[in-house]
Amino acid sequence: MIEVKNITKSYGKTQAVRGISFSIKDGECYGLLGPNGAGKSTTINMLSMLFPPDSGDLAIGGIPIGKTNTQIKSMLGIVPQEIALYEKFSAWENVLFWGSIYGVAGKALTDKAENLLKWVGLYDRRKDAITEYSGGMKRRINIACALLHSPKVLLLDEPTVGVDPQSRNLIFELIQQLNKDGMTIIYTTHYMEEAEKLCNRIGIIDNGLIIAQGTLDELKTQSQVNDMIIVDCTNTPDEKLLAEKLKTTVVVNENRVSVLSNDSKKDLTHIVTICNDAGYEINRIDIQKGNLEGVFLKMTGKQLRD
């Protein structure tokens, strides 16, 4: 459904995307996971045809992206990172407007708007102005506005930013439902849990490059990550000292030490000994089973939220 080959994009001297390639099958949910400034939004913007890449090729549904391609744009549903809604309009007016600019009209439009607002659970409040909605409600309307024209591909750029856990779960359910119904989805996030929960395949992006991609299991295998030991100390440990003694990837973020481990039981004893010897008082220890954070740490040498 989507083919991306070696695309690049620069803003002045800053190279935001430095040669990204990936392909997404029909009905797949592909996650672009990376920290802020990694190049996720730039990639999504190029896929949204907001601007073309400086080099490389993009194709959606077998159609290469040119300067303007109405056919491709009609296939896409865009959920921007911002709450891109007209605040003075009601939810009903917003969905009707965004549907109409995609050519949906008449009864088809009102029926679809009604169904979507019911689906996101806001039909009863459809006449309220967007300003009266909570952050989570706005996010749901933001998604609904992208679905009026029944797109084949849905591009979601960090759609849960600033949303409370309850609303986040509701949004997850909506996205899972869409994917279950066969919609191809690209989902950018810097939350590992979201990528793990929603995406069939994940591309880890950092500094404008995809450094690894595949299913969660494939990524764990690729990076040979099993567990991650997290130790909270009362003071800031010396990262270099710990890495030398443990001979594995160690990241210290303020008072938290994250250690990648293939044998957590053995390494845990070792870590406690080193910390005691070095005079680092331990507050809390947590062992996480192999996850994306560990993969990211292994691949980039830094934590996702650095």
Binding site: T70, I78, Q81, A84, Y86, I101
Partner: peptide, 14 residues
Amino acid sequence: ESGTLKRLLCSPLT
């Protein structure tokens, strides 16, 4: 500033 222009530019409108 609100992002609606970006959304409009991504739509089939030129």
